[in-house]
């Protein structure tokens, strides 16, 4: 790909798990979480990675910025290979992460100090940190709350602080590891709105999620299957119309696809590639 920012080649990741046998002895069992993933991620794109728990989607996210190191295979970020120990901090600065639990990723007891944590670690000069913290907090709409204690904020607000903390490191790529899984619908919408905004501003977004309505907002969707790597890869339209394949991995296709399938089964002529409610409505109107 011309404009590739992340290149993943045949990535294999294995966990070693200690298991206690009945007689009390322990054996080491190797579990393969990722089985030969190859992905080229374009600069400025918005990629959604979808899969059930155990499909390795979180493991993939953690491999992209070196929190976990591949058992085999190769990952390069902006041309730098991840195995390169000397450059690991450059890569982490460039590939920021936002995690699932809004509580467990905030370090400081004051909002702005937390947002400053990343750039502080990078040794950024104080005046520049101040500027970045203010910009990041304004972008996520939490500037007014900069002197508050995180534990007094809602889940959605905490997650916005975590996003500001990632942004303050001035990354090109942000990986979101199920950022909305623990939020209520309101918090979920707030976070998705910010993700879309960051995408518009040119950041490369990787969103790990199991909510279809979130994946639909991306411009590319990858479906992972436990043990066998990438199952589907394409635009949301190309992926979500494959309802059978989705059901095979226990993912629920969007309503328009589901209803389209049922009507087609009754003999109606509904095109396969209708994935959104609006499209189905429009098509039915024409048919009438």
């Amino acid at each position: 790909m011309e404009n590739s920012i992340i290149k993943i080649e045949n990535l294999i990741y294995e966990y070693v798990k200690q298991e206690v046998l009945d007689d009390g002895s322990t054996v080491e069992k190797v579990k393969r979480a990722l089985n030969g993933i190859s992905l080229d991620i374009e600069k400025g794109s918005f990629l959604a990675v979808v899969g059930q728990n155990g499909s390795g989607k979180s493991t993939l996210a953690k491999n992209i910025n070196g929190l976990l190191l591949p058992t085999r295979g190769k990952i390069t970020v902006k041309g730098v290979e991840l195995a390169d120990d000397e450059r690991i901090w450059d890569i982490r600065q460039n590939v920021a992460m936002v995690f699932q639990n809004p509580d467990n990723q905030l370090v400081a007891s004051i909002v702005e100090d937390d947002v400053a944590f990343g750039p502080e670690n990078l040794g950024v000069p104080s005046e520049v940190i101040r500027q970045r913290v203010d910009d990041a907090l304004k972008l996520v709409g939490m500037y007014e709350m900069r002197n508050k204690a995180p534990h007094l904020l809602s889940g959605g607000q905490k997650q916005r602080i975590a996003i500001a903390g990632a942004l303050a490191m001035d990354p090109d790529i942000i990986v979101f590891d199920e950022p909305t899984a623990m939020l209520d619908p309101k918090g979920r919408k707030e976070v998705m709105a910010i993700i879309n905004k960051l995408h518009e501003e040119g950041k490369t977004i990787i969103l790990i999620t199991h909510f279809m309505e979130e994946a639909v907002q991306a411009d590319r969707v990858v479906i992972l299957k436990k043990g066998s790597g990438i199952l589907l890869d394409g635009s949301p339209k190309e992926v979500f119309c494959q309802s059978e394949t989705l059901r095979d991995v226990d993912l629920t296709p969007p309503l328009a696809v589901e209803l389209g399938d049922r009507l087609r089964a009754r003999g109606m002529d509904i095109p396969q590639d209708i994935t959104r409610i609006e499209e189905l409505v429009e098509y039915l109107c024409q048919l009438k």
């Binding site: 619908p185 309503l255 328009a256 209803l259 409610i277 609006e278 189905l280 409505v281 039915l284 109107c285």
Partner: peptide, 16 residues
């Protein structure tokens, strides 16, 4: 609050 997806779809059709 949200409406169920299917309600949204059917309401859109009714409007048409």
């Amino acid at each position: 609050l949200d409406l169920p997806d299917v309600t949204n779809l059917c309401e859109a059709l009714r409007e048409k």
